[in-house]
Simulated assay, not measured.
Amino acid sequence: MTAKTSHSGRKAGGYRGSLGEWLTPARTTVLVLVVLSLIFIFENTRTTEIRLLVPEVTMPLWLALLGMGVIGALCGALFMSRRR
């Protein structure tokens, strides 16, 4: 007896595929870059002064780097969603 499959070749019942199908080269590259970015951010923990237009703010460097990373990710997500 064989399992029923849909016309996409997947088994019926919500089968989503193997890890190899999900882990494409692009996703692997992004995952490696995220891990390296987090290592870089958390290795730089000293306090620094940052100028935001007029005021000068003293904050941990890791927090400033993490904030810029989040802003960059949001901008990238916005541009990618507009392409579709």
Rank of each mutant, 00 (worst) to 15 (best):
P55H: 02
T29G: 07
I50M: 09
S37D: 05
L23M: 14
L65W: 04
A26N: 11
S18K: 15
A26D: 15
M68K: 03
G13D: 12
E49P: 00
L33A: 14
G67R: 01
E21C: 02
T45W: 02
V30I: 11
R27I: 07
L61S: 11
S37A: 05
T5R: 15
G69K: 00
F40S: 12
V32G: 03
P55Q: 03
L61H: 11
P25D: 10
T28I: 14
T45L: 12
L31G: 14
L33R: 12
R16Q: 12
R27N: 12
G69Y: 02
F42E: 13
M68P: 00
T58N: 03
V32C: 06
R16H: 12
A26K: 13
T29W: 00
S8Y: 09
S8Q: 08
L53W: 12
H7M: 03
L66I: 02
L33I: 01
V35T: 05
V70W: 06
L33D: 14
K4A: 15
T58F: 00
S6P: 00
L31I: 10
G20Y: 08
E21D: 14
E56C: 01
L38G: 01
L31S: 15
F42P: 03
I41A: 11
K4I: 05
M59I: 12
T47F: 04
R46S: 14
L53C: 00
L61I: 00
M59E: 08
A12H: 06
R27W: 04
V70Q: 05
S6H: 10
L66Y: 10
S18C: 07
G13H: 05
L53R: 05
S37C: 04
G14M: 05
V32P: 01
L33Q: 13
F42S: 04
L53N: 08
G20E: 14
R27E: 06
L61V: 03
G20I: 04
K11E: 09
P55E: 03
E21L: 13
V35P: 00
F42M: 09
W62I: 01
V54K: 11
W62K: 06
M59Q: 09
P25G: 12
L23S: 07
R46E: 15
P25Y: 13
T5A: 07
G69W: 04
L33T: 05
R27Y: 08
